[in-house]
C-alpha cells in the first residue's frame, strides 16, 4: 500500500531523510519510534504530501506522489492524519468539524454527512458532545474528535503523529483505547509514538529511526526483547526506565 524507495529529503542543507526504504502492506500496523530529530514525523508527513522530497519514489495506494496536484488530491482523500496538536477548527462545533470535508470534498448531502458523523462519534464514544465547541472539551476528548474527523473521510490508511504527546497522563489511555479498537478492526496504521505499551500490544512491525535513517525494523517481540543495533538498545534502555 505504501512504498518508499530510496527517499531522500533535505531542509535547505540539512539532510532530514536518508535513503528511506519502507514498505507497508494493507492491514499492517507500523509503529515508528526514535529520538527527537530523527525524522519520524517528516517520514509520515511525506505520505500525505505535507512534506515533499527531493529524490526517490513514493507510492501510496499505487499512486505515485509527485508534483502533480491530482496525485496529491487522490492520496489525501484516502489517507487520514491525526496531529499532535489536534488542530480542530475552533470556530466550528464538533459535528461541523466532522461534516465539513465530506460535504465540501466528497459532495455528500448534509443528511448523509450528519449520519456518518454521528456514527463516527459513537465509534470513538463521544456522541454526547456533538454540539459543543472544541474549547469546551478536554484534551483527550479533542483528540478523539480529531480521530473521528479523519474517519469521516473513510480513509484506507491512518497516520498518527505523536497523538498522545500533548495530553495529560490521565487522558492518554482513552485515546489509546480508541486507537487499539481501530487497529483490531483491521485499518492500516502508521503511528509515531513514545507509548511502548501500546506499541507492544498493537504493532505488527516496529521501525526505529535515528538521524534520518531507518536503523532497525522488526516484529515487536524481537524488537523489545532482542534489539540488534546498539543505538536501538540504548534508546530502549532509556525509554523503559520510566
Amino acid at each position: 500500500m505504501i512504498e518508499f524507495k530510496l527517499i531522500n529529503k533535505w531542509y535547505g542543507n540539512y539532510h532530514a531523510l536518508r535513503d528511506i526504504n519502507l514498505e507497508v502492506k494493507e492491514g499492517e500496523r507500523v509503529i515508528v519510534c526514535g529520538p527527537s530529530g530523527s525524522g519520524k514525523s517528516t517520514l509520515i508527513r511525506c505520505i500525505n504530501a505535507l512534506e515533499d522530497f527531493q529524490s526517490g519514489t513514493l507510492r501510496v495506494n499505487s499512486v505515485s506522489l509527485n508534483e502533480d496536484l491530482r496525485s496529491v488530491q487522490l492520496v489525501r482523500q484516502s489517507v487520514g492524519m491525526v496531529f499532535q496538536q489536534f488542530n480542530l477548527f475552533p470556530h466550528l462545533t464538533v459535528l461541523q468539524n466532522l461534516t465539513l470535508a465530506p460535504i465540501q470534498v466528497k459532495k455528500m448531502s448534509p443528511e448523509n454527512a450528519l449520519f456518518l458523523a454521528m456514527a463516527q462519534l459513537t465509534r470513538v464514544r463521544i456522541e454526547e458532545h456533538a454540539h459543543k465547541f472544541p474549547a469546551q472539551l478536554s484534551g483527550g476528548q479533542q483528540q478523539r474528535v480529531a480521530i473521528a474527523r479523519t474517519l469521516c473521510m473513510e480513509p484506507k490508511i491512518l497516520l498518527f503523529d505523536e497523538p498522545t504527546s500533548a495530553l495529560d497522563p490521565e487522558m492518554i489511555q482513552e485515546v489509546l483505547d480508541v486507537m487499539i479498537e481501530l487497529a483490531t478492526q483491521g485499518i492500516t496504521m502508521i503511528c509515531v509514538t513514545h507509548e511502548m505499551g501500546f506499541a507492544k500490544r498493537v504493532a505488527s512491525r516496529i521501525v526505529f529511526m535515528d538521524q534520518g535513517q531507518i536503523m532497525e525494523e522488526a516484529q515487536p517481540e524481537d524488537f523489545f526483547n532482542h534489539p540488534k543495533h546498539p543505538r536501538t538498545q540504548a534508546f530502549l534502555a532509556k525509554l523503559l526506565d520510566h
Binding site: N48, Q73, R76, V79, F83, N87, L88, A101, V105, T150
Partner: peptide, 17 residues
Amino acid sequence: GAGQLEAAQSLGLGYWK
C-alpha cells in the same frame, strides 16, 4: 496557526475552500 492549514489540507480541502 499553521496547524489549521495542515489539518484542512490533509482532509483534502483546496485553497479557496
